[in-house]
């Protein structure tokens, strides 16, 4: 399973965590399409804690964390 963690406004109308079968997504872009999140709304995409592109590969057991533009200090 791929664990997809959603944060901030991505949680509106969705669960905080979504699990996908590896066959359902080969990259974060596939995950976004599955969840109906426009690609341009993603500011930070982490795969296992590291910044990644939407075209980078995801595989079974990966943790994907998706954030819209957010910041602070």
């Amino acid at each position: 399973m791929i664990e997809v963690r959603l944060f901030a406004t991505f949680r509106e109308g969705r669960d905080k965590i979504v699990y996908l079968e590896p066959e359902q997504a080969s990259c974060p872009a596939d995950v976004l399409d599955h969840l109906k999140i426009p690609h341009e709304e993603v500011a930070i995409c982490l795969i296992n804690g590291f910044h990644s592109k939407l075209s980078d590969p995801v595989k079974d057991q990966d943790v994907l964390a998706l954030f819209p533009p957010v910041g602070g200090g």
Binding site: A8, I44, A65, F67, V70, G71, G72, G73
Partner: peptide, 14 residues
């Protein structure tokens, strides 16, 4: 968007 909606606390999860 992010700061007005969630404040600086939005950093916790990131």
């Amino acid at each position: 968007g992010g700061l007005p909606t969630y404040g600086t606390a939005v950093l916790v999860n990131i």
